[in-house]
Simulated scan of single mutants.
Amino acid sequence: MMKEITAVSLFTGAGGMDIGFERAGVKTVFANELMKEAAETYNANHPGNVMVNDDINNVIDKLEEFRGVDFVFGGPPCQGFSVAGKMDPDDERSKLIFTFLDVVEKVQPKAFVMENVKALGILEKWEPIRKKYLERAQSMGYSCIPIILNATEYGVSQKRERVFFIGIKGNGDPFFEYHMRDLIEQQKQKAPIVKELLQSLGRAGTEMNPDTCTAKITFATRPIMRKSPYAGMYFNGQGRPIDIDGYANTLPASMGGNKTPFIDEEYLYGEAESDWVVEYHKGLLDGTIIPEFKDAPNRLRRITINEAARIQSFPDNYVFCGNKGKIYTQIGNAVPCKLAEVVAKAVIKYMQTEM
């Protein structure tokens, strides 16, 4: 009988990463989150009183008691590193990846997994920070590698690319990265297209899929065109149309208003032959449509909370707390559950077979 695998969860948010680790057989013994509503969401779905809703700097000294757990995992806020943000290394939030390592140093887990934006894993701009992070992990006795994964290759219908820093204590394996990549890639699973994923929820406004985002969709009078109908900016606001025959772009934490992506509902439910957005884009390109400022047709609508949660691979029965805007934020901020599960399973298997 294998002993229970335990973990400390940091920057927990609504618990997307925790769900993945739980599915891989890990029990969270302590969780920490600053945002009140996200902590409430976590408690509503994980009634074990392990959540502490406070600033991580206030709880760090209390973590001694969890010394020797198997894992420390979490996704520190990434706005400081995000290409979408200001990319400021002095942003307070950028320092939290080192606070994560402070906890690792205190708790001395067998392994750690830290998720962040892809930029931190590859951009030259972040090379010094990456180097400092990896050197610090090494000085603490952890061999650590960054691995970039695209969620669509692991069952998540969203083009979300993220870096996972995986550290294992006392690991002298020269082929660590090779083995870890192999264990992750063995779990590759093509994600369903958005149409297949969302259809069974039913129309927006029905029982399983309440209509939750009322932000209007309006046309831009000066569209910025791209080859793809899903890439240009010919609607106002940052919410873009989703290609339901493919995958959603990364769901942002700023959803809830006009930054919420949208879909053609008639096309989603098979009542229309083609996506309205594609036809409109074609008309703009060939000059048969003159752009004017007006509301988009009703068949175009923002994705609902339940749809956003499904795109992030949360279970359908997951309970979210807070107002609508806060719930959209929690969903956008989360690590897709299925992606976290893949990484957790790979690390556990590595520790069982290679260590």
Rank of each mutant, 00 (worst) to 15 (best):
T206P: 12
R23Q: 07
A215D: 13
E153G: 02
Q330E: 06
F175R: 15
I129D: 06
G167T: 13
K169Q: 14
T221R: 08
Q352W: 08
V163N: 05
L101H: 09
Q330N: 06
F98P: 10
E92I: 08
K27Y: 00
A231T: 13
T260W: 03
G167C: 09
K259I: 06
E196P: 09
Y154E: 01
F164E: 03
F112L: 01
E92A: 02
R302N: 08
K216M: 10
E65V: 11
A272P: 08
M35Q: 14
M233D: 15
E341D: 10
I331H: 04
P192I: 04
P252L: 00
Q352N: 13
Y269F: 13
D54C: 10
T221M: 03
Q158T: 10
L284I: 10
P241T: 04
K169I: 07
K190A: 02
A39Q: 11
N298V: 13
G170I: 10
S228Y: 14
P192G: 00
R93V: 08
T206N: 10
R301T: 13
S254P: 12
E292N: 10
M255P: 10
I224D: 11
D316V: 04
Q79W: 08
I168L: 05
R299S: 06
L149A: 01
A346I: 04
G246E: 12
L183P: 13
P109G: 00
E185H: 14
P210Q: 03
M233E: 14
L149G: 02
F112Q: 02
L96T: 07
E265H: 12
Q108L: 03
I129S: 02
T304N: 05
P241A: 02
T353K: 13
C321M: 10
V69G: 05
L284P: 11
G170E: 15
Y267Q: 05
G232M: 04
E266V: 01
E115R: 03
A24Y: 13
M35C: 07
T152S: 02
A204E: 15
V343C: 00
A14E: 08
F73K: 04
G325A: 14
L123R: 14
P76F: 03
P76V: 02
K188M: 00
F66N: 07
E354Q: 15
V72P: 03
V335N: 01
F262H: 07
Y154M: 00
D316K: 11
K216E: 15
A248W: 12
M2E: 13
D91R: 09
I145Y: 13
F71W: 12
P146Y: 00
